[in-house]
């Protein structure tokens, strides 16, 4: 690549990204942009590499090829020191919540605050209570992650991800394993947080109800072709995507009546 590429303008830009485990290529040549304040969904069948893509975006895995840009700045080739600055702007919720099990919910959220800010212990406590209140967990400060339910763990995980008021929130399967009502409440929570905090949200999920309820943009990873299947608003892709796999996925296997040319 000798010609200087134009600096991407979007919040997150993925260029020619190829992901591989050793010689096994999971997905190749991904190209898409995530705009500021998007609720962006990464969707696709089980095992297609959705979570792997997320791990590439947050720097836990190195791409086999290609680049990830944040606000036009190259994240992939950044030095460890610079990379830490990028990472400081992320909030990540993992599939299982991944709360530190030896700490209480409050300590989990307080830890990044204690490490990275000079707040007084009192201010930290107040901020922790506020973050827990935002996700509906007031009063659970002193519970350990093993003492609360899976849904509460996930919500606490979101609270911890928001501890440092991140610019970009990454959520890995927030709705998985939750009952429909809790899942719905989580969707509302995500929408409200985006609207009031103005962060960009990137979600990995394959729950159609959530996808249509919250996403305004999405990428579909196609297991068959091992590359990107479609990019766009899922409600539109549902009926008007050129890719039959995308339509099938979004219609739970039923081909939609309207097929675009």
């Amino acid at each position: 690549m000798s010609a200087p590429m134009p600096e991407p303008k979007a919040k997150i830009s993925i260029r020619d990204l190829t992901m591989a485990y050793g010689s096994y290529v999971v997905m190749s040549d991904l190209n898409f942009d995530i705009q500021s304040r998007d609720i962006f969904v990464i969707m696709g069948g089980s095992g297609c590499g959705k979570s792997t893509l997320l791990r590439h975006l947050i720097g836990l895995r190195e791409p086999a090829k290609g680049t990830v840009f944040y606000d036009g700045e190259n994240f992939t080739t950044a030095e460890p020191d610079e990379r830490e600055k990028f990472i400081r702007r992320f909030g990540v919720m993992y599939q299982s919540g991944a709360l530190w099990s030896s700490l209480t919910l409050a300590e989990n959220i307080a830890l990044p605050l204690e490490e990275f800010t000079s707040m007084t212990p009192k201010a930290v406590r107040e901020l922790v209570s506020y973050k827990l209140a935002l996700v509906g967990l007031s009063g659970y400060e002193d519970y350990y992650p093993s003492q609360v339910s899976g849904g509460m763990n996930k919500r606490a995980g979101i609270a911890r991800a928001m501890a440092l008021d991140p610019d970009i929130l990454f959520l890995d399967e927030p709705g998985a394993g939750l009952d429909p009502l809790s899942s719905r409440r989580l969707d509302d929570l995500i929408l409200r947080l985006r609207d009031s905090l103005g962060s960009t949200v990137v979600i990995v999920t394959h729950e159609l109800a959530s996808i249509f309820a919250i996403a305004n943009n999405s990428v579909f990873l196609d297991t068959e072709t091992r590359t990107l299947g479609a990019v766009g608003n899922p409600s539109e892709l549902k009926d008007h995507s050129d890719n039959p796999n995308v339509r099938r996925f979004l219609n739970r296997g039923k081909e939609s009546a309207v097929t675009s040319p």
């Binding site: 720097g59 990540v92 993992y94 599939q95 991944a98 099990s101 030896s102 990044p112 490490e115 990275f116």
Partner: peptide
């Protein structure tokens, strides 16, 4: 056992993404 189960539960990844 402690560090291993933290790894299995993605807690180590969580540390990394806070820049710790």
């Amino acid at each position: 056992a402690h560090i291993g189960s933290m790894k299995a539960n993605e807690e180590i990844d969580a540390l990394k993404t806070f820049g710790l």
